[in-house]
Nucleic acid binder design. Structure first.
Length: 817
RNA sequence: GCCGGAGUGGUGAAAUGGCAGACACGGGGGACUUAAAAUCCCCUCCUCGCAAGGGGGUGCGGGUUCGAGUCCCGCCUCCGGCACCA
């Protein structure tokens, strides 16, 4: 009786041997082309879940495949180790965040090893190591020196549960909730550090250097939100001019009032005494509204007249100045010119408050009348009632109204072309302990001062009190915050905020190359050969956070002359989300969580890996299925048996050439599929191949050269997918060294095409029969064979043949009338 | 509302404009076994038919084409993102 495959024991054995032999050690081999494969690093929560397996199994397979393909592959792993859960564990259970984090890391690293990943752990980076965050601080100072880091006092998003500020990117959805905990955010006025990502807005819109999913690029473009238009200055009777941003300067002649955001700094000065009480009341009401109420799009427009007037610069008409909460201080200049006939929001406002709605764009074939309009006309047409613009077609193109209006404004000194972005600067201050201290000190004499670079890192103190107070534990530490001014030596105080953890992940890919290098963020010598990342894989949930930040960071690094390229990751692939068996997101509350550790202990890591890749297209995700997993277990056992079991052979005629064709077709198919991350169809092809081997084994093809070729190919093709099984099979069949050091098998193209062709014969596109012809049969002969076919004759039945389409190697279609 | 992506058997899915449903799960049948499990083999889109064979079928409606799951136009549904952005 043949030996059964003991996956669990075999896997442990090989993991140990691989570690002892240093199989996955990073030893650059410059004679091979480099390939930097990177997958998003985990947060050390304490346990690897299915999502990690779904992210890492295929990326490990892809990296192994590239290695066998002849590339020098770097595939590192680390830990995104700063963040709130560590601190919350400290608050709830009195555990030191550092100990909590490092013990989680140790455990998760052992889990990652049990997956059988191709990781060299000597290259690991851990973001909460001082030797790592030292360089966060160093970067911060370089940013500061270049004016890319600045501090400002402004209303910012605050999560009341996590007790910290958030970047705009970290406030999600219609409900304006915290990305981390789902709590609705509120606004607070605070002194905060920001990174000037807006300075790179235009460059971030350029994706010409990368192959990224269209979806991610679209999300980033929308997030950056570039709009082109003009700044226009309106004089006011109170004296202060008001600047507005508009994308439709051509409709200026139809502007009949202005609206300022309630928080606009000029409101107080524009407001007349008669209107003051009403304006104050409105401002107060607006400030009391939550962010959600304020931004609800379906609520009725409200506003209050300030009593003031502005002068429309194009026709010198006196127009009233209102305040309304539909104008946001955070976009453009916080003030708009209202053109009610051509903007739906302004229209609703004007109708409510009986403001005039003159038409200045007349759509072709219609006659709009401002008095009877029922909605704004935002579309095209011809300019009317617009002085010098009359008769010009409305639109943004050359020779159309927008360009003409801008030209007029510039000639008359009333405005100029302008671009506005939705993107905000990146707010990085967090009022929490477990993060990178911001390396700034505040001196009464000298103001804000960066910590000198030779004093980095500014280390986190460990003796802190985690009792929750709503303030950063650093602020309450008895001594840590007090220091001396690097400028004058007088008493000074440290910034007690820490950096957003997205700072850590903005440049970690560089650190992996030389995680202990102490002269710079990374060793430029190594970087020259290995950068940038060739293939990045990870979840799409980071589209406008991490993936935008790291692009920004890389562009700054280029400007700091640390690197010579501007895009961190050339190719990006987003895996989908693995769901519970009930097709719902896995969660404790739903009780549908599947623990990979249990499955690994029972079936082995290879089976779990394989099923992850077999479920479906990797970018699609999908529900977990325990019975499906048993299918891959069966396949692993079948592969094991076909390689290791003695068979009788057979007395039936076997066709070694047919077997060889099958082998070479499979080599081609699996290689082509792995190349495009189509793991599911690659595995299906291997299953088919094994099924064929089961049949061939009962024939005289068994134990021929063709058979041994097939077994060898199977073992090699399985190597990236089921590394342990394959290594064991390799050893058992007398392979030299490790299977993972072998080259990917070559296929003979001549053997991948069939010897005789089976052609489909259709009549009017309907399948009638199949005919088999030799491979290079002339088209005329094929036509004749098809026409002579019995079933074709039957369905022709007196009709005339109009045309015969022959698709070489595929089919014949006879068109009849 | 705007921008993406997706709708194919009982289920996960496959298919450079060319045989729809590969591969697998589940189900049915058989072999082996005292029996069961495991394993191996066969069948399994729907429908009419004893069969041979026929008809229908990729969310819905049109179109292009010799030929459409695939391309184009118009809808419907689901998922994701953004949303008073001037």
């Amino acid at each position: 009786m043949a030996e059964r495959y003991d996956a669990v024991t075999t896997e442990k054995k090989w993991q140990q041997r691989w570690e002892e032999s240093g199989l996955y050690k990073f030893h650059p081999q410059p004679e091979r082309p480099k390939h930097y494969a990177l997958t998003m690093l985990p947060y050390p929560s304490g346990n690897l879940h299915m999502g990690h397996w779904y992210a890492y199994s295929p990326s490990d397979t892809a990296a192994r495949f590239m290695r066998m393909r002849g590339f020098d592959v770097f595939f590192p792993m680390g830990f995104d180790a700063f963040g709130l859960p560590a601190e919350n564990a400290a608050i709830k259970r009195g555990i030191n965040p550092k100990h909590w984090t490092y013990s989680n890391i140790d455990y998760m690293r052992s889990q990652l090893k049990a997956m059988g990943m191709m990781i060299d752990w000597d290259q690991q980076m851990v973001s909460c190591d001082p030797e790592y965050y030292r360089w966060n601080q160093w970067f911060f100072i370089q940013f500061y020196k270049r004016g890319l880091a600045y501090r400002t006092f402004a209303p910012v998003d605050w999560c009341p549960k996590d007790n910290t500020t958030l970047a705009r990117e970290q406030v999600k959805g219609e409900d304006r909730v915290c990305e981390r905990c789902g709590t609705p955010v509120i606004k607070k006025d605070l002194d905060q550090w920001l990174f000037r990502i807006t300075q790179y807005a235009d460059e971030l819109l350029d994706f010409s250097g990368v192959e990224w999913p269209e979806r991610i690029m679209t999300m980033q473009r929308n997030w950056i939100g570039k709009s082109e238009g003009a700044h226009v200055t309106f004089a006011t009777e109170a004296g202060d001019p008001i600047e507005v941003f508009t994308t439709r300067p051509d409709t200026l002649w139809g502007a009949t009032f202005m609206v300022l955001a309630p928080e606009h700094p000029l409101v107080d000065r524009l407001t007349t005494d008669e209107q003051r009480a009403e304006v104050e009341a409105y401002k107060l009401a607006a400030s009391r509204q939550s962010e959600i109420e304020r931004q609800a799009t379906d609520k009725e427009k409200t506003g209050v007249w300030t009593g003031g007037y502005a002068i429309n610069p194009v026709n010198n008409e006196r127009i009233p100045i209102w305040i309304a909460d539909y104008v946001l201080m955070g976009y453009g200049t916080g003030a708009i010119m209202a053109v009610p006939a051509h903007d739906q929001r302004d229209f609703e406002f004007a109708r409510k408050y009986n403001l005039p709605t003159p038409v200045v764009v007349q759509p072709v074939g219609q006659q709009l009348d401002g008095a009877t309009l029922t909605e704004a006309w935002p579309g095209d047409g011809v300019m009317v009632n617009s002085g010098p613009l009359n008769g010009i077609p409305a639109g943004k193109e050359e020779g159309q109204s927008v360009k003409a209006a801008i030209q007029w404004l510039e000639e008359h000194g009333k405005g100029k072309a302008a671009v506005n972005y939705r993107l905000r600067d990146w707010l990085i201050s967090r009022q929490r302990y477990w993060g990178t201290p911001i390396p700034m000190v505040y001196c009464q004499q000298c103001g804000e001062q960066p910590v000198p670079e030779d004093q980095l890192p500014v280390e986190l103190p460990e003796d802190v009190d985690f009792t929750p107070t709503g303030q950063s534990p650093l602020k309450l530490h008895p001594t840590w915050r007090f220091t001396i001014c690097p400028q004058c030596g007088g008493p000074a105080e440290r910034d007690t905020d820490t950096m957003d953890t997205f700072v850590d992940s903005s440049w970690y890919q560089y650190r992996y190359l030389s995680p202990h290098f102490d002269q710079a963020p990374f060793d430029p010598e190594i970087g020259r050969n290995w950068l940038p990342v060739d293939q990045y894989t990870g979840g799409a949930e980071h589209a406008v956070m991490h993936l935008l930040y790291t692009r920004f960071w890389t562009k700054v690094m280029r400007d700091l002359e640390l690197i010579t390229f501007g895009e961190p990751m050339l190719r990006l692939f987003n895996q989908g989300i693995i769901l519970g068996e009930d097709n719902e997101k896995m969660s404790k509350s739903r009780g549908n969580v599947i623990d990979p550790d249990h499955l690994v202990a029972r079936y082995g890591a290879d089976a779990v890996r394989l099923f992850m890749m077999f479920i479906g297209p990797w970018n699609q995700g999908g529900p977990w299925n325990n019975q499906g997993l048993e299918g891959t277990v069966r396949f692993i056992n079948r592969a094991w048996n076909i390689v290791t079991e003695e068979a009788r052979g057979g007395t039936t005629a076997g066709d070694p050439t047919a077997l060889r064709r099958s082998t070479h077709r499979t080599i081609k198919k699996v290689g082509d599929d792995l190349e495009r991350f189509a793991f599911n169809t690659a595995i299906a092809a291997l299953m088919e191949f094994v099924n064929e081997l089961y049949k061939a084994r009962e024939t005289m093809a068994y134990n021929t050269d063709a058979w041994h070729e097939a077994i060898r190919a199977l073992t090699l093709l399985l190597a990236p997918l089921t590394p342990h099984l394959s290594e064991e099979l390799w050893a058992r069949t007398g392979g030299d060294g490790s299977v993972h050091l072998q080259s990917w098998p070559q296929y003979d193209a001549a053997l991948t095409v069939a010897e005789a062709l089976e052609l489909v014969v259709q009549v009017n596109g309907k399948l009638r029969d199949r005919i088999t012809v030799p491979i290079d049969t002339q088209e005329e002969h094929i036509k004749a064979a098809a026409l002579n076919n019995e079933k074709v004759q039957a369905s022709l039945d007196g009709k005339t043949v109009a045309k015969i389409v022959v698709v070489p190697g595929k089919l014949v279609n006879i068109v009849v009338k």
